[in-house]
C-alpha cells in the first residue's frame, strides 16, 4: 500500500482536538501546527505536507503520543513522513534526511555507528564546505577530551549488517 495512504489510515481516528499542538516543544518553529499537518494527511494534501517543515522539526519527545486522547502514535507518524522525505530525497529536507542516512550508513558498515565516520559521511553527502564549521565548537571540545577522532570512512568489516539491511529492503519492497 502507498505509504501516505497507510499513514492516512493510521491517523483516521484523529478528532482535531489540538492536544498534539499544545504539547509540542517545537511547535513555535513549525509552519503548520501538528494538528493541521494531520488534517493535511487526512485530506490528501500531499503538496502542503511536503511544503511544510513541521515533521522534520519533531525531536521525538513523545509528549503528543502520550497525551493523544485517541491513542494515536503521532511521533511514529512524524517519523513516517521523515522516511518518505528521505526516500524521495526531497531537497528541502536534505540537511536532516542525509544526517539520518549517513548515520545509518555507518551502522550498515560496522554494526555500530562510528561517530567520526558518521560526521565525515554527512559532510561528504551535503557537499557544503561551510557545514563542518557549524560543528567545529562541539567537535573540538570532544576531540580535546579524546572522545571522538576524525575517521576516514572505512570499508565494511567486523559486525557489518549488510544481510539485515538487504532483508529489510526486500520485505519493504514486497509490502
Amino acid at each position: 500500500m502507498d505509504e501516505l495512504l497507510q499513514l492516512k489510515t493510521m491517523l483516521n481516528p484523529c478528532i482535531q482536538c489540538g492536544t498534539c499542538t499544545a504539547s509540542c516543544p517545537n511547535e513555535v518553529d513549525m509552519d503548520l501546527v501538528p494538528r493541521k499537518l494531520w488534517r493535511m494527511v487526512l485530506m490528501d494534501r500531499h503538496e502542503a505536507i511536503f511544503d511544510s517543515r513541521t515533521f522534520i522539526l519533531c525531536s521525538s519527545c513523545y509528549l503528543c503520543t502520550l497525551r493523544c486522547p485517541r491513542g494515536l502514535p503521532l511521533t511514529a507518524a512524524m517519523a513516517r513522513l521523515k522516511a518518505i522525505a528521505a526516500k524521495r530525497d526531497l531537497a528541502k529536507y536534505r540537511k536532516s534526511t542525509r544526517f539520518y542516512k549517513s548515520f545509518m550508513e555507518s551502522v550498515r558498515r560496522h554494526g555500530r555507528v562510528r561517530e567520526g565516520e558518521f560526521m565525515g559521511l554527512y559532510f561528504l553527502a551535503m557537499k557544503n564546505p561551510l557545514l563542518p564549521l557549524s560543528f567545529a565548537s562541539l567537535g573540538i571540545q570532544l576531540m580535546k577530551k579524546n572522545k571522538v577522532a576524525f575517521e576516514l570512512p572505512a570499508k565494511p568489516g567486523i559486525g557489518n549488517l549488510d544481510r539485515l539491511f538487504k532483508k529489510v529492503a526486500e520485505i519493504e519492497e514486497a509490502l
Binding site: 521525538s60 517519523a79 522516511a83 528521505a86 545509518m104
Partner: peptide, 18 residues
Amino acid sequence: DDWNCCGATAAEAVSSLL
C-alpha cells in the same frame, strides 16, 4: 556479544522496519 546499534532516532526516520 556482538551487539549492534539500536538505530537511535535515525533508523525510524529512514525505515520503521529497519
